[in-house]
Design a binder for these strands. Structure first.
Lengths: 333, 333
DNA sequence: ATGAAAGCGCTAACAG
DNA sequence: CTGTTAGCGCTTTCAT
């Protein structure tokens, strides 16, 4: 029921005006008589007309699409960022399109190429560690590139996020200041999760400065999860019973660690530290430390940058927006 | 660097052939000489040509876009489903575009209208409870509509998910069979989370059949979260200290409940039951009950249906794919 | 195996 | 205030 995909031409005919007038009326152009606009609106209603954005975009040479490329959806941080982007775009008439890379650089390149074929008005990609060919493709795409999450590297254009190296450093400093001395590390798939690897490296840097090092560590192969964090923590606690602090690749892993601690009745002694500042971690019956990263905010700003990018001449000079994560939950040993 | 947005025409010129031949070569049409194809490919490489899908879609009258409309990203279930859709679409050349409704029916309608303007090849929407005008819009859009998650209602076209009413019923039966007698309920924003409301209604139906009812309940205003579940559980336990079972609107809330139970040292006595089967719940140091809903699978099937829908004549007859969630973690009182 | 013409549905740039 | 003429970049015919 209802006529299929009616066109502007049909609406115009029904309203007894030309295509252009109908177009203007629908877009709220100022120079259309109230009466004409009314007739066009009625015709639109009658025919159930829905504009064709493909035609619009092709004709106007702007898509109002924002391509967003993230590694995964299974880690809550990326949906959180997407929600932020979506919010940052709200009311601008821009639409987010997303693609997943599964933490695979080759897949990332393909996904980005694919995205580019939609001629987005801006493209948001995760991190700064794209291989050279991908960077080249992005550079020559004539589209503002917004790199998010990470700050450690050379941005193509816009960059919003935080330094994961420094986040690791700061957490190490805070823990050492709180009297922790015997450190362990638990993470997974660091060759894919580059930001977690940077945090670890930063953490170790400070440990070394203080003539300390990880007494023991466990690295999983699969992506981080609460279950994996728990499993590896049990392992590590068995091998190194006298740790007084464990640094985790992120909050999911740390929450798993907290569960393991509870199960082993060692919840009080060992301070577990993660990264992200998930709500979940705050609700835990056991206090864990974390660096609160402003995920949603990063997304919102990326969204705002994307909508700003529709302006005729975008700055050729890159802009960097840096956050410093707040550390919480660190308590004396 | 690199020429901006080169067109097929430029590629054709560089290869010394016509636009059409270049087009055919790039799409791998059979009737192009190997030599010609080679030249076109080289020209493509040289110019860094990336096809324009807007033009492609407008011309061929098919977008290969799948619009996906979900309430939120903050609840891990929806990203999970999106990941499934993305996986189900993989290799088909189709792209998912998503929109968020914030559990708001009006916003949902606007988002759907907006999506429709991209002329997607299929549209995936959450649930079966769209208001009449939204349904009308979807029906007259000449696009396969795939309604996911819920099964309790009248589908427009395709429907994949599970009956939340029955899920609630089954959980109640399992808990009663396990000897639980004094039930409480904790949930939030049920006027927006319609599926949680259906589960609750199903649960109560079975309670009544067994001459039982909720002894106490707590309903929050904000969307479900671990923190809220914990808070409301503390409240409820204070008001009704002798419950032996609490049904939660979902796993997030139930995990919060488990945390509260641990804090109150009442973890053994009270069985907490949620919904979704999150990994997180399985890692808990305390066993909770849940109905495992196949989120990713639902997404994958939706994706598969969407790619199937590109076939010329889609079945006018709706197709329903039903899952029955598996209940785990129920133990004797 | 290749090309020319027409057109997808819309808007930009000029008229009037 | 309204209409006309040209495209946007590609694919679909239909020729050759």
């Amino acid at each position: 029921m209802g006529l299929r995909k009616s066109t502007l031409e049909e609406v115009a005919a029904a309203a007894g005006v030309s295509k252009m007038t109908a177009s203007r009326a629908l877009r709220g152009a100022p120079d259309v008589s109230a009466e004409t606009r009314q007739r066009v609106l009625e015709a639109t209603e009658l025919l159930g007309y829905v504009g064709n954005r493909l035609a619009l975009s092709l004709s106007s040479q702007k898509t109002n699409l924002v391509a967003v490329v993230v590694p995964s959806m299974s880690n809550i941080v990326f949906p959180e960022v997407l929600a932020g982007i979506s919010a940052g775009l709200e009311g601008s008439g821009m639409q987010a399109v997303f693609g997943l890379t599964d933490y695979d650089a080759r897949k990332e390149r393909d996904v980005i190429r694919d995205m580019l074929s939609w001629r987005p008005s801006a493209i948001v990609v995760t991190g700064l560690d794209q291989p050279e060919d991908t960077v080249k493709m992005l550079r020559s795409a004539d589209v503002p590139v917004i790199q998010i999450m990470d700050l450690d590297g050379t941005p193509i254009d816009f960059n919003v996020g935080l330094s994961h190296g420094k986040a690791g450093e700061e957490m190490a400093r805070a823990l050492i200041a709180a009297g922790r001395k015997r450190f362990g590390y638990i993470g997974s798939a660091l060759e894919r999760d580059l930001r977690a690897a940077k945090r670890k490296a930063g953490f170790e840097r400070v440990l070394h400065e203080n003539h300390l090092s990880f007494i023991g560590q466990r690295l999983g192969d699969t992506l981080s999860s609460v279950g994996l964090g728990k499993y590896l923590t049990h392992q590590l606690l068995r091998a190194e019973p006298n740790l007084d602090c464990i640094y985790y690749s992120n909050d999911d892993m740390a929450v798993g660690g907290a569960f393991a601690g509870l199960e082993a009745s060692r919840s009080g002694e060992i301070l577990m530290a993660g990264f992200n500042g998930l709500d979940l971690a705050a609700a835990l019956p056991l206090r864990i430390a974390t660096s609160k990263s402003p995920l949603r905010m990063i997304g919102e700003i990326a969204g705002r940058l994307a909508r700003g990018s529709t302006a005729p001449n975008l700055p050729s000079t890159g802009k960097i927006i840096a956050f410093v994560p707040e550390i919480t939950g660190v308590h004396q040993g």
